[in-house]
Amino acid sequence: KKSYVLIKVKNPKTKETHTIVVPEENLEEVLKALASQPNVKVVDIERFP
């Protein structure tokens, strides 16, 4: 059974918020990819039960 993680990201320029759902096993690479985006800020990470 896969567990999923909900990542909320915000664009500081446009103030838009997006929610991305990723499998927990991919969380680290997704966070690394997001960290390299200049106008993306991770605001929240939630685990799915």
Rank of each mutant, 00 (worst) to 15 (best):
F48A: 07
E24P: 04
P38F: 05
V21T: 06
K8N: 03
A33Q: 09
E46H: 13
D44K: 12
I45M: 06
F48G: 05
Q37S: 09
P38A: 08
A33E: 06
L34I: 07
N11E: 02
V30C: 07
V30W: 11
H18C: 13
K2M: 09
P49T: 11
D44P: 02
Q37G: 04
K32N: 06
Q37V: 08
V42A: 02
E25M: 05
K15N: 13
L34D: 00
E25Q: 06
N11S: 04
I20C: 09
E28G: 08
Y4A: 02
K1I: 11
E46N: 08
N11F: 09
P38E: 07
K32L: 11
F48V: 12
H18R: 14
V30Q: 03
V22W: 03
I7W: 00
S36L: 14
E24F: 10
E16W: 14
L27M: 05
P38M: 05
S3Y: 15
P38Q: 08
P38K: 10
V21N: 03
V22K: 01
E16H: 12
Q37R: 14
V30P: 00
K1G: 12
E24M: 08
Y4H: 03
E46I: 14
D44T: 15
E28I: 10
K1L: 12
I7D: 00
P38L: 07
P49A: 08
N39T: 05
K10H: 14
I20D: 00
T14L: 04
H18P: 00
A35L: 14
V43W: 03
I20L: 12
Q37D: 13
K32A: 11
K15R: 08
L31V: 03
E24G: 04
K13V: 13
L31P: 00
S3G: 10
K8L: 11
N39E: 07
L6E: 02
Y4Q: 02
P23F: 12
V21G: 02
N39Y: 09
K13D: 09
L31G: 00
L34Q: 00
E29I: 09
R47A: 07
E46G: 07
S3C: 11
E24L: 09
K8W: 15
Q37F: 10
K1M: 11
L31M: 05
A35C: 06
A35M: 13
R47M: 07
E16S: 07
D44L: 14
L6H: 07
L6C: 04
K13F: 15
K10I: 14
D44S: 14
Y4S: 02
I45F: 04
S36H: 08
V5S: 02
E25I: 05
